[in-house]
């Protein structure tokens, strides 16, 4: 199957669609990926969630997030229409390792990625960091400080994560649209810088 449009726009009901681009929001279980997408998406994020008691009781670690009752078992995503010809999709990665087979799908063609970390469980984000590094995808690490507590300073976190200085490390609030926007902009500016160097 080719991936170009059928050469007959007059037969189309809606004409040329907007150019879709996407970014990937990754991170461990319960770090705020869905919240991040919801904060900035113009649509109610389309999420396939099932109550954790149904599908994952005893599998997911709720020790640090005892109030979280659902987890994302498939993809969740939102859309931002940047202008009538350009749509930015934000895809959250599945929260559990066993859905890792979906990652290639999510990452193919993405402009960049944001890895969200919770400093109480830094190791949860290693899978995403490793994956983006291996794929060569421009990414930043965002520390979600939604409860206002950052127990460590950024240098300590950077050391603990063992990420090079070329990977931006930002603090942001997943519930605040402007904060999410700025974190995404850090990723995009890195992507632009990389593309300019090519």
């Amino acid at each position: 199957m080719t991936t170009t449009a059928l050469p007959n726009p007059s037969a189309s009901g809606a004409g040329r669609p907007p150019l879709p681009v996407k970014m990937v929001i990754a991170g461990g279980f319960g770090v705020g990926k869905t919240t991040t997408v919801a904060s900035i998406s113009e649509i109610e994020p389309l999420t396939t969630e099932a109550a954790i008691t149904e599908v994952a009781a005893g599998v997911d670690d709720l020790t640090h997030t005892p109030h979280k009752t659902t987890t994302t078992v498939a993809m969740d995503f939102g859309v931002i229409t940047l202008d009538p010809t350009l749509k930015l999709y934000l895809f959250g990665t599945p929260g559990q390792d066993r859905f890792g087979f979906m990652w290639d799908d999510l990452v193919a063609g993405a402009l960049g990625g944001l890895v969200i970390v919770d400093t109480r469980r830094l190791d949860d984000c290693f899978a995403a960091v490793d994956y983006f590094e291996n794929k060569g995808l421009p990414f930043a690490v965002g520390i979600n400080v939604f409860d206002g507590n950052l127990d460590h300073d950024l240098d300590e976190v950077r050391w603990a994560l063992d990420i090079p200085d070329s990977v931006p490390l930002v603090m942001f609030d997943a519930r605040e649209r402007g904060s999410v926007r700025d974190a995404l902009l850090v990723v995009l500016e890195l992507a632009l810088q990389r593309a300019e160097e090519e």
Binding site: L19, V21, I40, I80, L82, D83, L86, L88, L111, E176, R177, G178, S179, R181, L184, L185, L188, E189, A191, L192, A195, E196
Partner: peptide, 17 residues
Amino acid sequence: LSVLRRVIDGLRAVPDS
């Protein structure tokens, strides 16, 4: 580059809360 710049410009124009 032009796509990336358009995305950046578009996102910068997104208002916060």
